[in-house]
Design a protein around this nucleic acid. Sequence first.
DNA 1: CCTATTTGGTAACTTTATGTAACTAAGTAT
DNA 2: ATACTTAGTTACATAAAGTTACCAAATAGG
Lengths: 109, 109
Amino acid sequence: MSQNEMCPRFEKAVNILSQRWTALLIYQMLDGNSRFGEIQSATGVSGKVLSDRLKSMEQEGLINREVIPETPVVIKYTLTEKGHSLEPVLKDIEKWSQSWIAPDNKVEA
Amino acid sequence: MSQNEMCPRFEKAVNILSQRWTALLIYQMLDGNSRFGEIQSATGVSGKVLSDRLKSMEQEGLINREVIPETPVVIKYTLTEKGHSLEPVLKDIEKWSQSWIAPDNKVEA
DNA sequence: CCTATTTGGTAACTTTATGTAACTAAGTAT
DNA sequence: ATACTTAGTTACATAAAGTTACCAAATAGG
């Protein structure tokens, strides 16, 4: 336990973005992927965690969930304005990675 | 398992930043905090995890560890150029949080 | 010498988060 | 009825994080 003197809004933002997968999921949605299965196979996240993350991102107001009663059913996840507003942050991370991470870095860890 | 088609450098960067505490630790160091105890009490991270993170951040080339043989011993952690280069990313997150996170948000979760 | 204090940790154990694999539900076509 | 597809959930296993107690070095006080 300690006295956190950091801005609680900043901490909240960091907590959101440092939840495993969340940044990658938003990145995928920025990239046009909107369906459960698309996002899952693009990222490799497990169905269980994807389901959890989508729920908490929805509660956080980052995404919307839309049910399209086609057959079979299609669920479309789209970024809200708030979610979309994270684009510059992710692009910054991308830019940083291109300057500072070696190109042949395997993610095997 | 899945076929990740994202840029592996971007993924690596996201993995670094989405490790719990890492972003907050860098933020503290940008703010001038350099000692184990300072960083620990400023953030609230446990000694065990702080120790782990500092090691992996050092291996990642983000920080340097300097032993100053005063009494009692002082260990000084400072950002490398690579570590410091994350400042714009963190400032972007901070800016985002000020626009999109409610001010009275308690971190109690 | 013996004890206490301070910094920067480590070790053992508990709790929480994530991963895996199998299963469910709705809708439809065969 | 059976099978197929999407979008999940459930039960169980493993990994990561938190908690608390302890260790090591260096020194100061008694």
